[in-house]
Amino acid sequence: MLKRVPKTTLKSLMKKKAHIRVGTAADAMVELNVLLFLHSLAEEARTKAFEEKSATIKAHHVKAVSKVLVRNSARGCLGLN
């Protein structure tokens, strides 16, 4: 059973500036995005660990795959600029 995300923390992380507000249920969607992000991070880190014949995910596996993933989520910025 997954833990619930703390809502107030999540809302404060969703916005950097005080004048932006968070609409109803938008934080639930961000919760989903956090889960999807950690899911793909975990899966790719596991693949990386297995490639290196390690049964345990270690810090450097996560570091290695995070570079690709963060670049991927950077695609969010491209279209509207």
């Binding site: 833990k3 969703m14 991070l41 975990a42 899966e43 880190a45 660990a49 810090a59 996560v62």
Partner: peptide
């Protein structure tokens, strides 16, 4: 959450890396 999705052993030294990744992730998300 990470361990739930990893479905394998996760070393404790993963946390500092994850923490930094999540910070960057939320910066971009916001």
């Amino acid at each position: 959450v990470f361990k739930h999705f990893a479905k394998t052993k996760v070393s404790t030294d993963v946390y500092p890396v994850l923490k930094e990744i999540m910070e960057r992730y939320f910066d971009r998300l916001a």
